[in-house]
Amino acid sequence: MTSTSSPALEARGLVKEFRGPGGAVRAVDGLDLVIRTGEVVAFLGPNGAGKTTTIDMMLGLAEPTSGIVRVFGKEPAGAVADGQVAAVLQTGGLLRDLTVRETVELTAALFGRTRPARPFLERAGIAELAGRRVGKLSGGQQQRLRFAMALVAEPDLLLLDEPTTGMDVAGRREFWGAIRNDAAAGRTVVFATHYLDEASTYADRLVLVSHGRIVADGAAAEVMALASTDNLEDAFVALTTDERAAR
């Protein structure tokens, strides 16, 4: 089903404006990006840089003001309808009165998958919570559940918006272990995060976003070289505050 010629994700001149009290606010300001299948890409940037808005457009949840976004060569909504994309959204998206197992089994059914849920619960580290109501889970456990939902969907492209928020260290490590496994099998993974160590350890490629534009794009070493530093945090601060803070 996946066309091998199209990149997993493609954005050209992507712009998103919101109407604010003082006129239009540009959340995304001319973003160009191509992500090939099998890449693991981290989206980095300060709060309000436009990461979530960009992910929303990639999922077809938001309509670009101008520019185009394609997922496996299709409109995002088409790729979602074909079950090629799954996402872990930042908050919400769970029914409190369902059990963990029911939530994962339902998600599998919605994606038309018929494999048993159990192995996916195990990979997300919540097999022992299978019978528990979602409303009784801790924040970190809910995050693992969202992850299990994304796994059971078996998408070609997985979009994660700050996926490890609320997880403890062990949880994070297991999470990224599972993500790397899937990526090795050919899945494309794009995640937004605030954790720079996570990004540099687990992503092949870092995309730094500031004020709705890409200010750096490459491996961690390249990003650091761009800012003439050997510290990613310094590079992050330099690249995301430099040009516009002076305005």
Partner: peptide, 19 residues
């Protein structure tokens, strides 16, 4: 494998029934 083509699918009607 994680491609949609290798995974058994049941389609929209199956999804509705389960849901």
């Amino acid at each position: 494998t994680s491609t949609t083509s290798t995974t058994p699918t049941t389609g929209q009607a199956g999804a509705i029934r389960t849901y």
